[in-house]
Amino acid sequence: MVHIWNDPTEVPEDFGPSVVTIGNFDGVHRGHQQVLSQLLRTAGQHGGRSVVVTFDPHPSQVHHPDSAPELIMGLQDKLDALADFGVDAVLVMKYNLALAAMTPEEFVSTVLLDGLHAAQVVVGHDLRFGVGNSGDVETMRTLGEKLGFGVQVVTEYGAGGFPVHDDGGTDRRCSSTWVREALAEGDVETAAAILGRPHRMRGEVVHGAARGRALGFPTANLDHGSTGYIPADGIYAGWLVDESGTRWPAAISVGSNPTFDGVSRQVEAHVIDRPNEAVEDFNLYGQTVVVEFTARLRGMVAYRGPEALVEQMRLDVVQAHKLLLDQ
């Protein structure tokens, strides 16, 4: 069981000693995973508890709300990914101007030492913390020597032999920015290679215009408050995971339904190959579901009418079935 805390005061007095890492961890991609792997190794070596300190909202949403990047994942999916990796605890610090004003030493003393009883700190080479991002790796090392904790720095965030390359065919540093670039192009395969798993969105299923149902392709429409980066418009093969944990193969549409002069972007998943006995009872309205993107089938196209659209949708379902199930 992973402990989740929202403030250092929630950490039990007898918790620790701990081995701590700090970061936003948006995406929990392969670069982050290298830091987390070192965190777990160090915790095992020192008999400590592994703890991730992360922030909500993302600092850029506080300091630069008009230009903050769209997040790859929501908080719940971040917590799930960290739990899947095997950490013992996550401290989710509420990021606000008061926290941003803490000096590096105040942050370390209050959060890492007084709160988490850190014996070791594992960080990436690009660490920045404290007021105005004034703290870096050397600051952390200096504070470690002064206050009595060890510091380990993970220096490589590269693809590390994984099949992830930039346009020039050379290894590129794994980063949240790279994931966003791939998703903005609809390249969910590259995004998955960087992340180490398929990209996902999470949201409540709401009523839509019911056009898909009228055309014979009912869809689960995600509400506009769903979390997770919305990939480029198009049709994708992927999976829908309902609240029971059942994974359903799906053809996923992202876009504004140009055939019907749609305006707002919508993410909707048509579940394929449902058992006959499940068709009538298959009602996802009000459920919070996860949609995973496996492959992009095509871009979004405006067809001349419903008949042409239906024919293309049939082809999309066949292609999605082949990619997801005929392996």
Rank of each mutant, 00 (worst) to 15 (best):
V241F: 05
D233M: 12
A237P: 00
G225P: 01
N283E: 15
T259E: 06
P249I: 08
V263M: 10
R265V: 14
V267C: 04
D261C: 04
L240S: 03
E268D: 06
R213M: 10
L215A: 07
G238P: 02
Y236V: 01
G216T: 13
I252H: 01
Y229C: 06
G228N: 04
S226L: 14
R247E: 13
N276Y: 13
F260T: 08
A237H: 01
S226R: 14
T227W: 06
L222Q: 04
V241D: 02
S253P: 03
I272E: 05
S264P: 00
G212S: 10
D273F: 08
Y229H: 13
I230Y: 02
V241R: 11
D223C: 11
T227L: 11
R211L: 14
L215G: 03
G255K: 05
D233L: 10
R274H: 08
A232W: 02
N221C: 09
H270V: 07
S244Q: 14
E280A: 15
V254A: 02
H224Q: 15
L284V: 11
I235D: 00
S256Q: 11
N257C: 07
Y236A: 00
D242G: 03
D281C: 13
G234V: 07
G234D: 07
T227P: 01
A269Q: 03
A214D: 15
P218C: 09
G255V: 12
G286N: 08
S253A: 15
G216I: 13
H270S: 07
G228D: 03
V267K: 00
A278M: 14
W239I: 02
H270R: 07
A250S: 12
T259L: 07
L240R: 01
A220N: 04
Q266V: 15
G228W: 00
V271W: 00
R274S: 04
G225E: 09
E280Y: 09
V263Y: 01
D261E: 13
A220I: 09
P231M: 13
Y229M: 14
I252S: 01
A278N: 09
Y229G: 00
E243S: 12
Y229S: 02
R213G: 09
L215I: 11
D233Y: 11
L215W: 06
A278P: 00
D281M: 12
F217W: 07
A251V: 15
N283A: 14
S256A: 15
D223Q: 08
S253E: 10
N221F: 05
T259Y: 02
S226G: 12
G216Y: 11
N257L: 07
F260R: 03
P275Q: 08
F282I: 07
T219K: 01
P258Y: 08
N257P: 01
R211F: 11
I235C: 12
N276H: 14
H224T: 14
D242I: 04
G255Q: 09
P218L: 09
F260S: 04
P258I: 11
Y285S: 09
G212W: 05
G238D: 03
E280D: 15
A278H: 12
E268F: 04
T227G: 12
P231D: 10
L215D: 05
V267A: 04
A220L: 10
L222F: 09
R213W: 08
S264Y: 06
A220G: 08
G262K: 01
S256I: 10
P249L: 09
G245L: 10
A250M: 05
G212R: 03
T219M: 06
I272Q: 05
H270I: 07
T246L: 13
G228T: 06
Y285N: 09
G245W: 07
